[in-house]
């Protein structure tokens, strides 16, 4: 069996219950894969454990159960191969923008001389449009600028896998749009593998190759993996005109609004390892009229899967 670039297998997170009560299970039986160069977003309501999954991949948190493998090696701690952009930017406030990026670059390439580290850091700061404010401290930068510095720091270290934890969650819509474009630009350059948490459906469609949908916690699961086959390069202004855009969007919104809470754990749990079913909302919409829904999904890239997987509610077919 060939391995995907990153595999998460049957991960679970439980917290001990109060007063000897039952454990609180945040999520369970979560398995998914990331292929090299893929941009994957994960969407779900608050409390479904997205951030725990992200932090575990970063090596900062641990699952109660399950395994994580990256390039055939188990993930058991933080690594420079997995760069993180945190929602709260996590810049070191006593360092300037340039020094913050240099901090990452220096940690990555210890044998580089200072001039090269500075040069490399500046080129990434320039890519996110911060060439003129490199000497400012984070406190002197706006929220959007800080997040750009954070993105520049993460991309400049060229990790194999980039983890973005709701990077635009704290930004206003206008700033968010501009930085999304910059993220696409900087990502197009190196085509790193990206795993990103977001709450924003439009953002996910704009950026992702695949979107993992999580059911509501506690006892959350990854319900399915939605394929976004809109052509690249994508642009915010153009993408909404694509005929498939609203089909995908409605499908995602419906999942978040109704199905994420309605899907029961029992429908998704099967024995053994399985990856979430791959769904293409566009194909689904075109075939929904005359084909039973359960057969129009695409098989996931790796692992075993059963064909009797997800039992969709009837309203499923209204979308698209």
């Amino acid at each position: 069996m060939s391995h995907a670039f990153v595999e998460v297998q049957q991960a679970a997170k439980r917290f001990p219950g109060a007063n000897d009560g039952d454990d609180l299970t945040v999520f369970e039986n979560v398995s998914f894969t990331l292929e090299k160069g893929e941009f994957v977003c994960i969407i779900g309501h608050s409390g479904c454990g997205k951030s725990t999954i992200m932090n575990a991949l970063a090596g900062l948190d641990q699952f109660s159960d399950g395994a994580m493998i990256m390039e055939g090696k188990e993930i058991d701690g933080p690594s420079l191969e997995r760069g993180v952009v945190f929602q709260n930017y996590s810049l070191l406030p006593w360092l300037s923008a340039l020094q913050n990026v240099r901090f990452g670059v220096r940690a990555r390439w210890k044998d580089w001389d200072d001039a090269r580290v500075t040069q490399h850091s500046l080129s990434y700061l320039e890519m996110v449009g911060l060439k003129d404010v490199v000497d400012r401290k984070p406190a002197q930068l706006s929220g959007g600028m800080r997040q750009r510095v954070s993105i520049a720091r993460a991309f400049a270290t060229k990790p194999e896998l980039l983890l973005l934890d709701e990077p635009f969650g704290a930004l206003d819509a206008l700033t968010r749009g501009v930085i999304q474009d910059e993220l696409i630009k900087i990502w197009s350059k190196d085509r790193q593998t990206v795993f990103m948490i977001t709450h924003d459906v439009d953002e996910a469609i704009l950026l992702a190759d695949r979107i993992l949908l999580m059911t509501n916690g506690p006892e959350a699961r990854i319900a399915e993996a939605v394929e976004i086959d809109l052509p690249r390069p994508r642009q915010r202004s153009e993408i909404v005109k694509h005929p498939h855009f609203y089909t995908i969007r409605n499908y995602l919104v419906d999942f978040l609004v109704s199905r994420s809470g309605a899907l029961r754990t029992a429908d998704l749990d099967r024995r053994g390892l399985h990856y979430p079913e791959s769904v293409n909302p566009v194909e689904r919409a075109s075939t929904a009229a005359d084909t039973p829904p359960a057969t129009d999904g695409q098989p996931a890239s790796a692992g075993t899967r059963s064909d009797t997987l997800v039992t969709f509610t009837p309203k499923e077919t209204h979308h698209g």
Partner: peptide, 8 residues
């Protein structure tokens, strides 16, 4: 965490 993810 920044220090940890940068393997300091």
């Amino acid at each position: 965490n920044v220090a940890r993810t940068h393997e300091l």
